[in-house]
Simulated assay, not measured.
Amino acid sequence: MGILAVLALPLLLLGISGIIYLYQSVRWLLSKSAVQNKVVVITDAISGLGKECSRVFHTGGARLVLCGRTWEKLEALYDALISVTDPSMTYAPKLILLDISDINCIRDVAKEILNCYGCVDILINNASMKVKGAVQSISLELDKKIMDANYFGPITLTKAILPNMISRRTGQIVLINSIQGKIGIPFRAAYAASKHAAVGFFDCLRAEMEEFDISVSTVNPTFICSYHRQPAPGNWEASIWKFFFRKVAYGVHPVDVAEEVLRTVSRKKREVLMANPIPRAAVYIRTFFPELFFAIVASEYLQRKYLLWRHGTKLLLLLQVPLLM
Rank of each mutant, 00 (worst) to 15 (best):
287 T>R: 15
133 G>I: 02
20 I>P: 13
230 Q>L: 15
134 A>D: 05
278 I>D: 03
101 S>N: 06
45 A>F: 09
211 E>T: 13
288 F>D: 04
43 T>P: 09
23 Y>T: 12
315 L>C: 13
63 R>K: 06
282 A>W: 05
309 W>I: 14
241 W>Q: 12
321 V>Q: 14
6 V>F: 12
202 F>K: 01
275 A>G: 05
215 S>L: 02
291 E>N: 09
2 G>K: 11
173 I>S: 05
35 V>F: 01
110 A>Q: 00
86 D>T: 01
247 K>F: 01
250 Y>I: 07
197 A>H: 02
223 F>R: 11
270 R>I: 12
276 N>I: 04
116 C>R: 00
184 G>S: 11
135 V>S: 10
81 L>A: 09
218 T>F: 13
161 I>S: 09
193 A>K: 05
116 C>W: 00
163 P>A: 10
99 D>N: 13
146 I>K: 10
152 F>D: 06
268 K>Y: 07
316 L>R: 13
226 S>F: 05
325 M>C: 09
44 D>S: 15
70 T>E: 10
72 E>I: 15
211 E>K: 15
290 P>L: 09
302 L>F: 12
47 S>G: 04
163 P>T: 03
251 G>M: 04
35 V>W: 08
29 L>M: 11
160 A>H: 05
256 D>Q: 08
108 D>M: 10
121 D>N: 04
189 A>I: 03
292 L>F: 08
10 P>E: 07
279 P>I: 04
164 N>V: 09
1 M>G: 14
48 G>I: 15
55 R>G: 03
150 N>F: 13
3 I>A: 13
44 D>N: 10
196 H>L: 01
61 G>T: 05
198 A>F: 06
50 G>D: 11
210 E>K: 14
208 E>N: 08
224 I>V: 12
106 I>G: 00
224 I>D: 06
124 I>E: 00
22 L>S: 08
253 H>F: 08
32 K>V: 03
311 H>K: 13
321 V>F: 14
245 F>I: 05
199 V>E: 15
61 G>Y: 00
223 F>S: 08
215 S>W: 11
15 G>S: 05
69 R>G: 11
77 L>S: 01
140 L>Q: 03
222 T>V: 11
136 Q>R: 09
142 L>T: 14
298 A>N: 10
289 F>E: 04
195 K>Q: 10
64 L>A: 08
114 L>K: 01
116 C>Q: 01
184 G>M: 07
69 R>V: 15
60 G>D: 00
89 M>C: 07
235 N>A: 07
47 S>M: 03
132 K>M: 01
219 V>Q: 08
105 C>I: 07
265 V>P: 01
12 L>T: 15
133 G>K: 06
28 W>P: 01
193 A>P: 12
141 E>F: 09
217 S>E: 06
109 V>I: 09
